[in-house]
Structures are given as C-alpha cells and as structure tokens.
Design a protein around this nucleic acid. Structure first.
Length: 169
DNA sequence: CGAATGATCCGA
DNA sequence: CGGATCATTCGA
C-alpha cells in the first residue's frame, strides 16, 4: 500500500557517494481502472514494468525535463505503482527540503533516469529501506495532483506526512 | 510518418 | 500564467 512507503528511506549508492532521503509524499496509480495511470491502456514498451514484479523501479521522463520515480506495487494480475513525490534529505543531498519537494525535483536530486527502470529496490544500488514508521495521526490523505482525469473524491490516493517541508505544494 | 500530449518546474 | 522540451503514444 502506498501509504506504507511514508517514512521509509530511499537510498542510492553510486560512484559519487551515498544519497538518502525520507519519503514524505506518495501517490498510488493503478491500471485498467485508473484513467490517470500510465498503465491505463494496457502494457506498452514504457509501461510493461508496471505489470511485472513488484518492488522494482519505474522511472519515466516527462515534459522533456523531468524524471519521476515509482515503486512498482500491485496485487497479482493487475498493474500498479506508487509515485514518489516528496522527501526530506538525510545523506548527501544538502539540507534544503524544498530540493526534494516534487517528483521531478526528487528525480533530479538523486540523478535518476529511465535507465533505473527495472532495478530491484531490495537488492541494488538504488533501494528502499525500512524507516521510522509514520503514525496515522501524522498522515494526510488527499486527491492526486497534476492529473486532468480521475479526480474523483473516491480516489484520494495522495498521502503526505503532515507538516513536512519535503511535501510538494 | 506526423501530431498531440504529459503523474512538472521555473521564471515573469 | 505561459514556456520549455522531448519521449511516448496514437491515428492516418
């Protein structure tokens, strides 16, 4: 579940050193029943990864500028992924949470590209670790941002850590 | 093959 | 509020 990624730690070890950040904002995207999802119209070369094994990265390039990272996560037989939208810097990322507030900024800060798509987030230089769990009282739930469709009140699939400066605006 | 568009960000 | 900027996708 998307909400459970809050508080977990995204770590990336590469030749430049280690970078790590605490995840504070996520959004869930499904497949065939979610018009806002890249997987809505079935698998394509870009999105087949969303139909595959959970726990791997799906990084997409958008608006000619931005790389955004998802964690593939879904029940058997259906597509799904969780978009990482905001984080707080922990290691190697400076000390300004605004630099990680927003999926494009997060991707930029970690140096992510589409080449990271398919990486196993349990065993690879790019991974997600357990972190301090975020209590329900600190989690805020709302409608997803930046999408033109599927903005129904039944789909409030954006989860944020209340009060964190790593949350996008 | 051409055209439209997007899970965004920045600057004015 | 509009422009940047291009990979991906869809229609012809």
């Amino acid at each position: 579940m998307a909400r459970d990624l809050l508080g977990r730690v995204l770590v990336y070890d590469d030749p430049g050193g280690r970078r790590a950040a605490r995840i504070v904002e996520v959004e869930a995207y499904l497949g065939a029943h979610d018009p806002a999802s890249h997987a809505f119209r079935g698998p394509t070369p870009r999105t087949t990864v969303m139909f595959g094994r959970p726990g791997v990265a799906y990084v997409y390039f958008i608006y000619g500028n931005h790389h955004c990272m998802n964690v593939v996560a879904h029940a058997p037989g259906v597509a799904g992924a969780v978009l990482l939208r905001g984080a707080e810097p922990l290691v190697g990322l400076g000390d300004d949470p605004a630099a990680l507030a927003g999926p494009g900024r997060l991707g930029r800060a970690f140096g992510l590209t589409t080449a990271h798509t398919g990486m196993d987030l349990v065993r690879s230089p790019l991974l997600i670790r357990a972190g301090e769990p975020v209590p329900s009282s600190a989690v805020s739930r709302s409608a997803r941002i930046g999408i033109a469709v599927s903005r129904t009140s039944a789909r409030r699939w954006r989860f944020t850590v209340r009060g964190s400066r790593g949350v996008s605006r």
